[in-house]
Amino acid sequence: MSTVIYPSPIFGPVHSRRLGVSLGVNLLPPDGKSCTFDCIYCECGFNKDHRPKQGLPSREQVATALEEKLKAMTADGLSPDVITFAGNGEPTIHPHFAEIIDDTIALRDKYFPNAKVSVLSNATMIHKKNVHDALMKTDNNILKLDTVDPAYINEIDRPLHTYCLDRIIDGMKSFNGHLVIQTMFMKGTIDGKDVDNTGEEYVGPWITAVKEIKPEEVMIYTIDRETPTGTLAKASPEELDSIRDRVIAEGIPCIASY
């Protein structure tokens, strides 16, 4: 199976289904994956198969590489819609994540003030004050919540450490609306077990939690690239549209990516 391991610290720009022209910032090593989740659908593969040997890029390396890329895009007449922290795992585990966010906002303001700064996170570090405060400074604080069923989370997202759903939801509430919830809906099986989370068993409680969290937006999506598990399948556009419409009916903006 093919997997995607991104260069570090800067990659792209790439076209994002949800964000537009996205210049990527990868705060993880360039030769493997470092994440607090080990999702069965991750395009970077399973953690055990891609252990990095190189270290994290330094704060200075990130700032230098980002400025060089922004200068080059200016010279080429290219404009990013967004500067996105993503890449080979969970960006908020970098020990200087907060300082790097400050550097990135300053460089964005200097070169492309209309671009948004976005972070794609699985929310496992939002209990840390410096991470929380840094995410509050971003334009798009995009946090994962695939379901509110702990057994499903352990089976599908496979957190490496204890995952307390109540603490995650309370942490999301603490952003006071300054967050976007991102949820993967899919079908198929893993080790013979059904992983379809498009039914009412999962969708109803998830919508209840979304209403309590009160995000500024919800992004729902499905599998787009090859996964390390060959038995997964896309949720249909009709299923995603139905879930999207239910979220919108609760007064919360929602977009679906197919």
Rank of each mutant, 00 (worst) to 15 (best):
Gly55Phe: 10
Arg225His: 09
Ala123Tyr: 03
Pro52Glu: 05
Ile168Ala: 14
Gly32Leu: 10
Ile153Leu: 11
Asn154Pro: 10
Ile5Trp: 04
His50Arg: 14
Ile255His: 15
Ser22Cys: 10
Arg18Val: 06
Ile101Ala: 00
Tyr41Cys: 09
Asp166Ser: 15
Asp194His: 10
Asp149Ala: 00
Asp146Gln: 11
Pro215Gln: 13
Asp149Ile: 04
Met172Cys: 15
Ala256Asn: 05
Asp241His: 10
Gly230Leu: 07
Thr36Pro: 00
Val82Gly: 00
Ile168Lys: 11
Phe112Ala: 03
Pro215Met: 14
Ile153Thr: 13
Leu240Trp: 04
Glu155Ser: 14
Asn154Val: 11
Pro91Arg: 03
Glu217Asn: 15
Asp76His: 11
Thr138Glu: 05
Leu28Phe: 02
His178Tyr: 11
His161Phe: 12
Glu217Pro: 06
Val247Ile: 15
Asn114Trp: 11
Ser236Thr: 15
Tyr6Phe: 12
Leu107Trp: 02
Arg17Leu: 07
Pro30His: 12
Thr124Ile: 07
Ile255Phe: 14
Val203Asp: 02
Leu232Asn: 01
Tyr202Met: 05
His132Ile: 14
Val117Asn: 03
Arg59Ala: 14
Ile252Pro: 07
Val4Cys: 08
His96Asn: 06
Ala256Asp: 06
Met172Phe: 15
Asp139Glu: 11
His15Arg: 13
Leu145Met: 15
Ile207Tyr: 01
Thr229Val: 04
Pro57Glu: 08
Ser16Phe: 09
Ala63Glu: 09
Ala106Val: 04
Phe85Leu: 04
Pro80Met: 11
Gly45Arg: 04
Ser34Ala: 12
Tyr258Asn: 13
Arg246Lys: 15
Glu250Lys: 13
Cys35Thr: 00
Ile126Glu: 01
Ser8Asp: 02
Leu28Cys: 08
Leu66Asn: 02
Ile83Met: 06
Val14Ile: 12
Gly89His: 01
Val25Asp: 01
Pro29Cys: 13
Phe37Asp: 03
Leu19Ala: 11
Tyr111Lys: 01
Lys187Ser: 12
Asn88Trp: 02
Asn122Arg: 10
Asp224Gly: 09
Ala235Gly: 08
Thr138Met: 10
Ser79Tyr: 07
Ile243Val: 12
Gly230His: 05
Glu67Ser: 08
Asn88His: 03
Arg51Ile: 15
Leu160Ala: 06
Ala123Gln: 03
Val131Asp: 00
Gly188Asn: 12
Asn88Ser: 02
Ala98Arg: 03
Gly177Val: 09
Arg158His: 06
Phe11Arg: 00
Val131Lys: 00
Tyr111Leu: 01
Ala151Lys: 15
Met125Ile: 02
Lys144Gly: 11
Val195Asp: 04
Lys116Asn: 13
Pro237Cys: 08
Ile10Tyr: 06
Ala72Leu: 10
Leu232Val: 10
Leu78Asn: 13
Asp170Arg: 08
Ala249Lys: 13
Pro91Cys: 05
Phe85Asn: 00
Arg51Phe: 10
